[in-house]
């Protein structure tokens, strides 16, 4: 156990993908590095020009393809290098967060935040907290093959259909 980061370093790394805007948060992560603020190693950062460049579908792709967590970070609202990119990002990302449960993905696995280029210590805090959260949640459930439903799930659907509670498409699959 690393005393500073509070993360099991001998444990398996989990897959955490970060999308960072070039001007603020990527700079903030650099600042944290220059200041040698120790962080858990799980995060892999993808650099984009602006948080407004982040298509929610990128995040979905990552989560569906096996990411255990996705962290997005941009400039603080009002402080966007492109004037208003992070406002678009905020709207899109908040919608995505609301939408995640519908897809069956735990919304806890996705977070967005704002870190400026000067906030190295804040970046360390964000990464550490998010990584710890993902480790608490454990690895994301794997996508299953076949029908896309496991035995238990199918049984539940079957039960539901018997009680007339499931939707027609489920009914079709289950019967």
């Amino acid at each position: 156990m690393s005393a500073r980061t509070g993360v099991l370093t001998e444990g398996r790394e989990l897959r955490i993908v970060g999308f960072l805007c070039n001007w603020c948060s990527y700079g903030g992560a650099d600042t944290a590095g220059v200041a040698r603020f120790e962080q858990p190693t799980d995060l892999r950062i993808i650099r984009v020009p602006c948080s407004g460049r982040i298509d929610p579908l990128f995040i979905m792709r990552a989560l569906v393809s096996g990411a255990d967590g996705v962290l997005v970070s941009g400039c603080h609202p009002r402080d966007c290098h492109y004037a208003e990119g992070n406002y678009y990002a905020r709207r899109r990302l908040e919608l995505l967060k609301q939408f995640l449960p519908i897809t069956g993905i735990d919304p806890q696995r996705f977070e967005y935040t704002w870190v400026s280029a000067s906030e190295g210590a804040r970046w360390q805090d964000v990464v550490t907290k998010f990584t710890n959260r993902i480790h608490d949640l454990g690895p994301a459930p794997r996508m299953q093959g076949g029908s896309g439903y496991d035995e238990l799930c199918l049984k539940q659907i079957e039960e539901g259909v018997k009680q007339g509670a499931a939707c027609p498409c489920h009914k079709e699959r289950a019967l």
Partner: peptide, 24 residues
């Protein structure tokens, strides 16, 4: 498409990190 940061380029990065491990 934003040149140098196209959808395909960013998705290539995502795919490099996250490969779906389907179990059949």
């Amino acid at each position: 498409q934003l040149q140098h940061f196209t959808d395909n380029q960013i998705l290539a990065e995502v795919n490099a990190l996250c490969q779906p491990e389907l179990e059949f």
